[in-house]
C-alpha cells in the first residue's frame, strides 16, 4: 500500500494544535505506517511539495505571507483541513481586528518596545493584512476541526476517516473553545 502524502502548516497560531497532534503519543507510530509527512514544522523540508493528499492547517490568515502560502497550499492539496479555532474562526489572532494595523504596530514596536523599531516603514516584517481571517474565507476548506486545541484523538480520527475515504466531517466531535 502506498502511503498518503500528508502535510501540516502553521500560520497565525500558537503551535498548540501541533502540540495536540504530538499528544497522539504511541498512536503516532500507527499513523507513521499510514502517512508520509512531506512538509511540516515537525520535519526539515523547506518548500511545500506538489501533490499532497491531506494538509492540516493550523492558524488564521494574518499576513500577506500567510495569504500567499495558503493559496499555494490549496492548489497543491486534495483534502484541506482547517485545524483548530484560529484556522476555523480566527480566534485569538483575530482579536486584533478591533484595532487598525497602524496603531497595533505602533503599540507593539514603538510605544511598548525597550528598543523601538520603525515597524511601519520596515520591509523585513511580513506585511499584516488589515484583518485576520479564518482559512475558509480565503480558500475552499474540505474539513473543519474546531477546538483550542482539538484533542489528539479528534485529529487522529479525522485523519483516519479521510484516509479511509469515510465522511471525515462526521468524525469530528470537538467544539469551539476547549
Amino acid at each position: 500500500m502506498t502511503k498518503a502524502r500528508v502535510a501540516t502548516v502553521w500560520l497565525d497560531g500558537c503551535s498548540g494544535c501541533h502540540m495536540s497532534f504530538l499528544d497522539m503519543d504511541e498512536q503516532l507510530i500507527e499513523l507513521a505506517g499510514l502517512i508520509d509527512l512531506v512538509y511540516s514544522p515537525l520535519v526539515d523540508v523547506k518548500a511545500f511539495p506538489a501533490e499532497v493528499d491531506v494538509t492540516l492547517v493550523e492558524g488564521a490568515v494574518s499576513s500577506e505571507e500567510d495569504l500567499h502560502k495558503i493559496r499555494m497550499i490549496r492548489e497543491r492539496t486534495t483534502v484541506l483541513v482547517s485545524l483548530g479555532d484560529c484556522a476555523v474562526t480566527g480566534n485569538v489572532p483575530a482579536m486584533r481586528n478591533l484595532f487598525p494595523v497602524k496603531s497595533l504596530l505602533r503599540r507593539a514596536y514603538e510605544e511598548n518596545a525597550a528598543q523601538p523599531v520603525a515597524a511601519l516603514s520596515n520591509d523585513v516584517l511580513p506585511k499584516l493584512l488589515e484583518r485576520v481571517r479564518p482559512v475558509h474565507e480565503v480558500v475552499t476548506v474540505d474539513v473543519y476541526v474546531p477546538g483550542c486545541p482539538p484533542p489528539a484523538n479528534v485529529i487522529l480520527n479525522t485523519v483516519r476517516a479521510i484516509l479511509s475515504g469515510q465522511p471525515a466531517q462526521a468524525a469530528v466531535n470537538s467544539r469551539f473553545g476547549m
Binding site: D85, T89, N91, V92, A94, M95, L98, C148, R175, F176, G177, M178
Partner: peptide
C-alpha cells in the same frame, strides 16, 4: 459580537 471561546 466577539465570542472568542478559548479565552472566555
Amino acid at each position: 459580537r466577539n465570542h472568542t471561546c478559548s479565552v472566555c
